[in-house]
């Protein structure tokens, strides 16, 4: 590989990438769309976008060896973001595709949103972060989802899976945000390592959430120095 890419958008085959690419460009980055495991493993920052279904997306990641690449970079604490389905893939499984294993970095099964409201949830809803969150701030964000990780009564913050990625257990802190659509679900997660933002998982679409989404990703990237140190 000639050069370490600044920002890789993972090519999952089904996603419409124009909006995510536009988000990266607004941040002054030149994104590379790639399905090459080496790119994904070592890029300064990676975005796993998400449109499509859990099963086919996971199949594509495994088929290309991208699951291992993603787990490797998460274990190393390299900045990694997941959007919508891209967030769901970090969990163990999804009701959407029974019998398919996710990346399993976090415990939990993604389920169809409960509460009897129209699905998909389509439009702007409130992001309500835990007080500890530093990247995530309260505000309106744009959703287009039928599935999500329910926020259990015991607490919104999902646990890291013991079978997941060993290095991931060394995050300094993890904080979640929830959103309510009929019932509460986990709408975002941030994880820090060595005082820097590492993981940013969004069930909403930051690329379509106006200035709020752009600023969230600027915080995620700037604090890592990924933007300025090149």
């Amino acid at each position: 590989m000639s050069e370490r890419p600044q920002l890789v958008i993972v090519e999952t085959g089904v996603a419409n990438l124009a909006s995510v690419r536009a988000l990266a460009e607004r941040l002054g980055m030149e994104p590379v769309v790639s399905a090459t495991p080496e790119h994904v493993a070592c890029a300064r920052a990676v975005i796993l976008p998400g449109v499509g279904a859990f099963g086919p997306a996971m199949q594509k990641l495994k088929g290309e060896g991208l699951d291992t690449a993603l787990k490797r970079r998460v274990a190393e604490g390299l900045p990694t973001a997941g959007i919508c389905l891209g967030m769901q893939l970090f969990f163990e499984a999804s009701e959407e595709s029974e019998g398919v294993k996710g990346l399993g970095i976090f415990k939990g099964t993604v389920r169809r949103l409960e509460g009897g409201l129209a699905l998909p949830q389509l439009g702007w809803n409130r992001l309500e972060p835990e007080p500890e969150a530093r990247l995530l701030q309260p505000g309106w964000v744009y959703f287009a989802n039928s599935y999500g990780l329910g926020a259990a009564a015991s607490g919104a913050r999902p646990e890291l899976s013991v079978n997941g990625v060993s290095g991931a257990r060394s995050f300094d802190s993890i904080a979640a945000a929830t959103t309510t659509y009929g019932s509460p679900f986990v709408s975002a997660l941030e994880a820090w390592r060595n005082g820097r933002p590492s993981l940013l998982l969004c069930q909403f679409h930051p690329e379509l959430s106006g200035a709020f989404g752009t600023q969230l990703f600027a915080r995620w990237l700037d604090l890592n120095g990924a933007r300025r140190s090149v």
Binding site: L117, A118, Q121, L122, G123, W124, N125, R126, W140, Y181
Partner: peptide, 8 residues
Amino acid sequence: MSGLAVRI
């Protein structure tokens, strides 16, 4: 009440 904002 869905929590969603009406869109303009």
